[in-house]
């Protein structure tokens, strides 16, 4: 009984994944291209950077990079706190 229920659930999940896989867009053929076209056509002129990925990461979406930097800072603080010497400061 339990096994058949598990098998049925597995089939259900598999069917959903199969439907999603069939309905995928073709490679290089997204639904909305306005954003990509904007970056490709204006990125070089507006930021002066040849590398459009960098111009997106550090200019158009600077907040995201700020968050990443803060995450790294938090990770370092956490590691140093977890591995501190026991009993008193260094």
């Amino acid at each position: 009984m339990r096994k058949s229920v598990a098998f049925g659930g597995l089939l259900l999940v598999f069917a959903f994944l199969l439907i999603a896989a069939v309905n995928l867009h073709g490679f290089g053929d997204p639904t909305n291209t306005e954003m990509d076209d904007y970056f490709i056509h204006n990125g070089q002129r507006q930021t002066g950077a040849n590398n459009i990925v960098t111009s997106v990461v550090f200019d158009y979406r600077g907040y995201d990079t700020l968050g990443e930097a803060t995450v790294l800072f938090t990770a370092v603080s956490g590691v140093l706190i977890a591995l501190r010497k026991e009993g008193g400061e260094e």
């Binding site: 070089q44 002129r45 930021t47 002066g48 950077a49 040849n50 960098t54 111009s55 550090f58 200019d59």
Partner: peptide, 25 residues
């Protein structure tokens, strides 16, 4: 500093461009 403008399209890449991005990098 890093203030040179570049034209749209393929180019060899000039170091003195992109404004604040290299400094942030």
């Amino acid at each position: 500093i890093f203030g040179e403008a570049i034209f749209y399209g393929p180019n060899p890449g000039y170091f003195n461009t992109a404004g604040v991005i290299p400094l942030m990098n």
